[in-house]
Every structure is written in structure tokens, then in C-alpha cells.
């Protein structure tokens, strides 16, 4: 008899729990899963605005994997990811550690650090465009003034130059985001643990590696996940600074797909989106695994 009552109570609780979750589930379904499903569906069709619509199954994907333009975008985006994300994490961690110490004007500094993140992406991209400008950009002006070079540098004009310029602009903009997240994580570590570690004869580096970093891991994974997904999707910075150039070497995934959508080839554009989605999903699952989410110890 008691067992039944408990069963009913559990069922009621479960129903209540789900009814609270319902708005969120509806939201995710409607605005996230449905569009993804829509994209997958569209990608199976020859959906070109000026041609007849046909179901072609995986033809779009076959074309995609043979297209050198796709692989160029793949190479660039992955390289961009591998270079910029670690840089952001390292600088972000550095800033977070500094901002966690008791230094004068700490509150002011914390606010200042956030400024790059607060500036809208397009505006900061335009500003960097002006900085990298060959003729009257700030970068060339400073470099020539400081005697580092005697001829202006064509920042966006070479493969390495354009890539580095993009990385620098992106790292500048998004490091504050990482720093703030990591700072929150650092502050969650009880101060006494550090004092205890000091007494236990650990020096600063040892404390950092054995206490701070392990306890920071969940937050690190979150920051890593966010930055990875954002780096995969990079568009506005590339669009403003290089338009994918010079010679198409800085074309990102998003830019590549965008061109096809613009030309009316929605089926193919959708297939690019789907591929990007799968890569992002794969990386997310990877991070969750190594971060052992859901199995934290407090």
C-alpha cells in the first residue's frame, strides 16, 4: 500500500517537473531543433531558386566533399580554431589570475577588461580594418614610427598576414569573455584551500597546477566549448576585414555557405550548414566527455 502511494507521489513529482520544463522544451524544439531538421531536409534537395526542385538525396554532400572550395574553407576554419582558441584561453586565464589578486583599482580594471567584448562585432571589425589599413592604418603608423619597419606592411595582403590579423582581432575581442568566466571560476575556489596549500609547502606554480587548475576544470571546459563553437562559426570578422581574401584563403565555413545561399542555391547552402553543425556537435560531445560533465565532485 505504501509502495503505491510512493509511486503516485513520484509520478506526480515527475509530471510537475516536466511541466516546468515544458516551456524550455517547446522553445528548444521550435527555435533550435526544427530549423536544424529543416536544414537537413533542405540539404537533401536540389533547391536552387531558378531551377526545378528535385529530391537528390546526398548529391549535395557528394559535391561538397569534392569541392576544393569546401576544403579550403575547412582548412582555414580549423586552423583558425586551433590557433585562436588556445590563445584566448591562455590570455583569459592570465587575466583572470591577475584580476583575482588584490591589486589597486581592481574593480576598475575588471570593467576595462570587458570593453573589447562589449563593443559590437561589426564595429570592432571595422575599427581593426582601419588599424590594418595599408596607407593610413594605426598599425603601420606605429611600426614605422617605432622603426620596426621602414616600408608599410600589407597586413591583409598575404596568407600569413591576413590569418594573423584575423587571429589577433578575434583574440583581442573574445579574451575578456574567457577571462570573466574563468574569474568566476577562480572566485568559487575557497580562499582557505590556497592558504592550506601554502602551509603544506606548495609554491605558487605548484598551487596553480595542483589546486587551481583541477578545480577550474569545469569552468575551463565551458569557456573552451563556447569559444570553439564561436570560432567555427566566424563570419563577421572575416567579411569585414578580408572578404575571404586574399585569393580566398581566409574563407570560413560560414562565408562559404553564405555565398551559395546568396546565389539562390539553398540546398547546397543547407548542406554546408549541416556539415558545420555535425562538426560542432562532435566537438561538443568530445568536450563533455573529457570534462566529465555531470560527474563533478564538489
Amino acid at each position: 500500500m505504501l509502495k503505491d502511494i510512493n509511486k503516485i507521489r513520484n509520478y506526480r513529482e515527475l509530471r510537475e517537473a516536466y511541466s516546468f520544463l515544458l516551456p524550455l522544451i517547446v522553445f528548444i524544439l521550435a527555435f533550435i531543433l526544427l530549423p536544424v531538421a529543416g536544414a537537413i531536409f533542405t540539404s537533401l534537395f536540389k533547391d536552387i531558386s531558378f531551377l526545378e526542385k528535385k529530391f537528390i538525396f546526398f548529391e549535395n554532400y557528394k559535391y561538397l566533399f569534392k569541392d576544393p572550395g569546401f576544403w579550403q574553407a575547412f582548412r582555414f576554419t580549423m586552423l583558425f580554431l586551433i590557433v585562436s582558441v588556445p590563445l584566448e584561453m591562455i590570455f583569459g586565464l592570465l587575466f583572470a589570475v591577475i584580476l583575482n589578486q588584490s591589486i589597486p583599482f581592481r574593480g576598475c580594471l575588471r570593467a576595462c577588461v570587458l570593453i573589447p567584448w562589449a563593443i559590437p562585432a561589426a564595429i570592432s571589425a571595422r575599427t581593426w580594418e582601419l588599424i590594418y589599413n595599408y596607407h593610413y592604418g594605426l598599425a603601420n603608423f606605429l611600426f614605422m614610427k617605432l622603426g620596426l619597419t621602414n616600408a608599410p606592411i600589407n597586413w591583409l595582403g598575404s596568407n600569413l598576414g591576413a590569418f594573423s590579423s584575423l587571429v589577433i582581432s578575434d583574440v583581442w575581442k573574445t579574451t575578456p569573455f574567457v577571462a570573466i568566466i574563468l574569474l568566476a571560476g577562480l572566485q568559487a575556489i575557497p580562499v582557505e584551500l590556497h592558504a592550506q596549500a601554502r602551509v603544506d609547502r606548495a609554491n605558487f606554480l605548484q598551487r596553480f597546477y595542483k589546486i587551481t587548475l583541477p578545480l577550474l576544470k569545469p569552468v575551463l571546459i565551458v569557456a573552451l566549448l563556447f569559444r570553439t563553437i564561436d570560432a567555427l562559426r566566424i563570419f563577421d570578422l572575416v567579411y569585414v576585414l578580408t572578404m575571404g581574401g586574399p585569393g580566398g584563403v581566409t574563407t570560413s565555413f560560414s562565408m562559404y555557405g553564405y555565398r551559395y545561399f546568396l546565389a539562390g542555391d539553398f540546398g547546397y547552402g543547407s548542406s554546408v550548414s549541416v556539415v558545420l553543425f555535425i562538426i560542432a556537435l562532435g566537438l561538443s560531445i568530445f568536450y563533455v566527455r573529457i570534462g566529465k560533465w555531470g560527474k563533478e565532485v564538489i
Binding site: 575557497p190 582557505e192 592558504a195 592550506q196 595542483k210 578545480l215
Partner: peptide, 27 residues
């Protein structure tokens, strides 16, 4: 010196064995 805090300050990510071994491993 050895110190015991009011909150014990045990390292949450280490096992009991590792917690106790910590001062020795460090050096």
C-alpha cells in the same frame, strides 16, 4: 608548520589518501 582550518580545507578533487599525502608529494 602544520595548520588545520575550521573548515578543514580538504582538497575536494583529491582522494583522502592523496589529501594526506599532499604535503609529502609536494616536496
Amino acid at each position: 608548520v602544520a595548520f588545520v582550518f575550521q573548515s578543514y580545507a580538504l582538497y575536494p578533487h583529491l582522494s583522502v589518501f592523496e589529501n594526506i599525502a599532499f604535503p609529502l608529494r609536494i616536496i
